[in-house]
Simulated scan of single mutants.
Amino acid sequence: MNINLIRNFRQFLTASLKMTSKLTIETVKQNAEVAKRTIVELRNELNNLNAEYNNLRAEQLREENAKLLIAVEQARKNLVDLEIANDVKQIPVPNRTSYKIDALATGESAQTVSELVKAEAAPTPNVKDSKPKKEKKPKETKEKSSEDTNIPIDVGRLDLRIAKVEDVQRHPDADTLYVLKINCGEDKPRTVCSGLVKRVPIDELKDRLVVLLCNLKPVKMRGITSEAMVMCASSPECVEVLIPPKDVVQGDLVECSGYIRRPDTVMNPKKKIFETVVPDLHTNENLEACYKGIPFTVPGKGTILAKTLKNVAVK
Rank of each mutant, 00 (worst) to 15 (best):
K77E: 14
D102L: 13
A110P: 01
N65K: 07
I84L: 12
V80A: 04
N65C: 07
V72T: 05
L104Q: 06
R96M: 11
E52K: 06
V88N: 04
A75Q: 07
L104A: 03
A71S: 15
L61V: 13
S98I: 07
N65L: 13
R57P: 02
Q90P: 04
K67D: 14
I84G: 01
D87Y: 08
E52I: 01
R57E: 02
Y53R: 15
A51N: 09
A66V: 00
I84N: 06
A51D: 00
L56A: 13
A103Y: 04
R96A: 14
Q111V: 14
A85G: 00
E63A: 07
A103G: 08
N78T: 10
N95Y: 08
I84P: 04
T97A: 13
Y99N: 15
N65A: 13
A58R: 13
Y99W: 06
L56E: 10
Q90G: 03
E59G: 01
L104I: 14
E83H: 11
V88P: 02
L79T: 07
E63K: 11
A85H: 06
R76E: 10
N95W: 01
A51P: 04
E52A: 08
R57A: 08
K100H: 13
I70C: 12
R76G: 12
Q60Y: 13
I84S: 06
T106R: 13
L79H: 03
Y53V: 14
D87H: 02
